[in-house]
Design a protein around this nucleic acid. Structure first.
Length: 262
DNA sequence: ATGCCAACCCGGGGTTGA
């Protein structure tokens, strides 16, 4: 089974590229983030015509997650247990589904903006709710089933997951509390499934639109795949499809693709 | 050339992203 995660930075603005990527990459399951559209405005017709079942969850603006699947799509859960709110709103940032016997979550972790900002606190609280929800689900399904959380985590797990750690001295995405939150998520029994880069040394997944960041490979690895042992043991390959970051109308994130046995 | 930010909402400019 081929599973991918991709922050598309507006699913409607990216629709032509998404449809063409589905044809060439031929994934069975795709986790999408940053839809920038409501559940109602999601482009169902085009993606259903491409052969996928769809579960979407969005309200527009800077949120929204979805899963596309052509191997079944069941048991849809929208949102986390006791999900924290920001400005009195619970944003659509997580959706769980079961596809081909694998329990899969597509998540879009809050950005955090800057350390000390209310959004940064929200980010840490959101991570705690994600950890709690994952713990509940893993207890419920037992250790036999395959389970994975994929998405834009907005945290670079290690210093070499950013192009120059010195550039991030005052920034979010690399702070100890954020990395500790990722560590507590791993402690539920999940492993970070590291993709191989198709070029250069590091498997970055995001490059800013500004300042020739992509040609200079000034990137970050913030789109992650966290899977339990049953899932991890089935992984045969995992890579960043950096070709999709090229050209006109690209998202600023590239898809992470993985192939599993059966 | 992988090439100098993009998408949203609103109604030309501000906000957000990471």
């Amino acid at each position: 089974m081929r599973i991918a995660t991709w922050n598309v930075n507006s699913v409607n603005a990216r629709l032509d590229r998404l449809a063409s990527w589905l044809e060439t990459a031929s994934p069975d399951v795709v986790c999408l983030q940053e839809l920038k559209c409501s559940t109602e405005d999601f482009p169902y017709d085009r993606l259903v015509a491409a052969g996928y079942e769809v579960a979407a969850y969005g309200t527009g603006r800077w949120n929204g997650v979805a899963v596309l699947s052509r191997v079944g799509l069941e048991a849809v859960t929208r949102g986390l247990t006791d999900e924290p709110h920001y400005d009195d709103v619970v944003e659509p940032r997580a959706i769980g589904v079961t596809c081909g016997g694998v329990r899969i979550w597509s998540v879009y972790v809050p950005n955090g903006r800057e350390p000390g900002h209310a959004h940064y606190d929200y980010k840490l609280r959101w991570f705690e709710a994600l950890r709690a929800t994952v713990t509940e689900e893993l207890e419920h399904q037992g250790t036999d089933g395959s389970f994975a959380v994929l998405g834009d985590f907005n945290v670079a797990p290690q210093d070499d997951d950013v192009y120059d750690i010195a550039e991030f001295a005052e920034s979010t995405h690399v702070t100890t509390p954020e990395r500790d939150a990722l560590g507590r998520l791993r402690d539920t029994g999940l492993a970070d499934i590291l993709p191989r880069p198709l070029k250069y040394d590091q498997p970055y997944t995001y490059w800013d639109y500004r300042g020739l960041a992509f040609p200079k490979n000034r990137g970050m690895r913030i789109d992650l795949v966290y899977g339990n042992e049953s899932f991890h043991s089935r992984v045969r390959d995992c890579y960043v499809d950096r070709e999709e970051r090229k050209g006109k109308g690209a998202s600023d994130h590239a898809p992470v693709v993985l192939d599993t046995a059966d």
